[in-house]
Structures are given as structure tokens and as C-alpha cells.
């Protein structure tokens, strides 16, 4: 654990990454300067900001989910939140394509909430057993993904937009999207940080938490709602950027330990850094072809997840 160093180094790294995000792209710097369109502020700055916002939202959502189910393998991807939001957003995009983009966020939140409710009902009350949770989550997510695929295949003429969105990409996103995402996170992030102490107490077990005056049911419900909302808004804007919600809290825990007043801000920064770096790599690796950022986060995230499974002895 290196709390001091982390709180100095992470913001610095984030700043460096943000600057590289402005400077790097499919066009070289001279062309950018010569061009009449304001590429840096119109396109790249908004994209950098979006990557930071969405990454922070996904990371925090993961940290909250892990605290709620007291299971290091939990993440919004795994418990069906992402798939639920994905299905709802795809439905909206394919069936009502004329609806304004602003509707996508409430729809994604409702989809995510419904998915979590179904999952909790399937797992059974009170028994948030890790293996059961993960297995039910996987089954539910594949089922929702199958429904999404079915929708995509049955509406081939409008499929492109939805597909790009589903893999998780910042392609074609701009200031409009920043202004949609920002207010949500400005409300949700401080609320999450305010829960720090209560999440610490939840980690001690239900009985100990209750004995210390935390209202366990209410704290858990509140944290779960915040987790779902943060994942849903991020997913609604940038699509399903996978594994950030799982990996960011773990990296943060390695850096600053399990106390949530340190863990949550560091998780947000790590998540932001992961998405930002993935997006820069996605734009530049095969330029002018652009990869979806979600592909890169999955490329890093999936092996890391397997590594976690080998280390986890909870079952």
C-alpha cells in the first residue's frame, strides 16, 4: 500500500494521459494545426473528458458493487447491470430511432435496475454466496446479450450505430455527450463518497455493521442504487466498456488498501486512467482505423480476471 505516493502520482499520470489524448490521434500534429476545424478542442478535448468521466463512473460503480455484495469478483459487468443497460439502450435505438439521445440514459438506468432486481430474485434473499452470484450473473448476462443480439439481427438496417455503441467506444462522441454525462456524475460521485464510512462498516459483516449503528439494509440499498446508476449513465453514453468496473477497484485496493475514503477516489482515478489510455491506444494503434476502447479494456481485463480467479479462495 502506498497511499501518499498514489495521491500524488495518479493525478499527475491522469494529466499526462489527458495531454497525450489531446496531442495524439489519427492526424499528425502539423495537419491538426493547419486544419481549419478546431480538432483539438472540438473533437479531442471532449473525448478526453468523456473517457475520464465514464472511466470514473464505471470504476466507482465496481467498487460500490464489490462493497455491497462483499465479494471481490463482483462488478457491474458480471451482475448483469451492463447487459441490462445494453438491452434497454439497444431497444430504444432500434425501435424508436427518432427519440432524442437524452432518453438513452433514463432507459439504460431502468434496464440496469431491472436486470439487478431479476438477478437478486434469482440468487435468493440474504444468500449472496460468491459462486452463486457469479454463476447467476453470467447466465443472466448471456440471456440479456442474446436478446440484444436478436434485436440487432431483426433490425439489420439500423444495426451499425447500435453495434459500435455495444462494444464500448468513444467514437463520434462530443460535447453534447459530455453535457449529458457530467451533471449525473456531479450528483452521483459526491453521494458515493459520502457513503465511505458506511461501506467500511459493511465490510465488517452485517452484525458488526448493525452493532456500530449503520443501518445495513438502507446502506446496502443506497450503495447498490448508486452503483447501478453510475454504471448505467456511463454505459449509456460510451457503451459497454468492459472490465473497468472489475479491474479499477482491485488496482486501487492494491495501491491504498480497503478503507473507502481512500479507495473510492483512487478507484475513480484508476478507472478514468484505464479508459483514457485505452481510448488513446484505440485511436492510434491502427490509425486511421479506429478500434473500440472496450476491445482494449477487455484485452487487458479478461486475463486479469482469470488471474484473480486463481488467487481467490472464497469458495
Amino acid at each position: 500500500m502506498y497511499p501518499r505516493l498514489t495521491f500524488w502520482l495518479l493525478p499527475a499520470l491522469l494529466l499526462v494521459a489527458a495531454l497525450s489524448g489531446l496531442l495524439l490521434g489519427s492526424l499528425d500534429w502539423r495537419t491538426v494545426q493547419a486544419s481549419s476545424a478546431d480538432i483539438v478542442t472540438d473533437l479531442r478535448l471532449s473525448r478526453v473528458l468523456l473517457a475520464i468521466l465514464a472511466g470514473a463512473g464505471l470504476g466507482l460503480s465496481g467498487a460500490l458493487t464489490q462493497a455491497v455484495v462483499r465479494n471481490p469478483l463482483a462488478s457491474p459487468d458480471l451482475i448483469g447491470v451492463t447487459a441490462g443497460a445494453g438491452l434497454a439502450a439497444t431497444t430504444l435505438m432500434l425501435l424508436w430511432p427518432d427519440l432524442a439521445f437524452g432518453w438513452l440514459i433514463p432507459a439504460a438506468i431502468i434496464g440496469a435496475l431491472l436486470a439487478v432486481l431479476v438477478m437478486l430474485a434469482l440468487v435468493g434473499r440474504g444468500t449472496l454466496n460468491p459462486s452463486r452470484l457469479v454463476l447467476v450473473g453470467i447466465a443472466l448476462s448471456s440471456w440479456l446479450a442474446a436478446l440484444t443480439d436478436w434485436l440487432l439481427v431483426s433490425h439489420p438496417q439500423k444495426v451499425n450505430m447500435a453495434l459500435v455503441w455495444l462494444t464500448g467506444s468513444l467514437w463520434g462522441r462530443g460535447w453534447d455527450h459530455v453535457w449529458i454525462l457530467l451533471p449525473w456524475l456531479l450528483v452521483l460521485v459526491p453521494l458515493a463518497l459520502m457513503l465511505s464510512l458506511r461501506l467500511d462498516l459493511l465490510a465488517l459483516g452485517d452484525e458488526a455493521a448493525e452493532g456500530l449503528g449503520a443501518n445495513v439494509r438502507r446502506s446496502r440499498l443506497l450503495a447498490l442504487l448508486l452503483a447501478v446508476a453510475m454504471a448505467a449513465v456511463s454505459v449509456a453514453v460510451c457503451g459497454a466498456i468492459s472490465f473497468v468496473g472489475l479491474v479499477a477497484p482491485h488496482l486501487a485496493r492494491l495501491l491504498v488498501g480497503g478503507a473507502h475514503h481512500r479507495l473510492l477516489p483512487v478507484t475513480a482515478m484508476v478507472g478514468a486512467l484505464l479508459v483514457l489510455v485505452s481510448d488513446i491506444a484505440a485511436r492510434t494503434l491502427l490509425a486511421p482505423i479506429e478500434l473500440p476502447a472496450g476491445v482494449l479494456t477487455a484485452l487487458i481485463g479478461a486475463p486479469y480476471f482469470l488471474f484473480l480467479l486463481t488467487r481467490y479462495r472464497g469458495w
Partner: peptide, 16 residues
């Protein structure tokens, strides 16, 4: 503030 409980199955969290 008036009543404390030491539960039977307490969890000592990592990284604290």
C-alpha cells in the same frame, strides 16, 4: 452509543 456487539463471525477486511 449505548450498546456494543462483538459478533461471533466477524470479518476483518483486507487493507485496513
Amino acid at each position: 452509543r449505548q450498546l456494543a456487539l462483538l459478533p461471533q463471525a466477524s470479518i476483518t477486511p483486507d487493507g485496513v
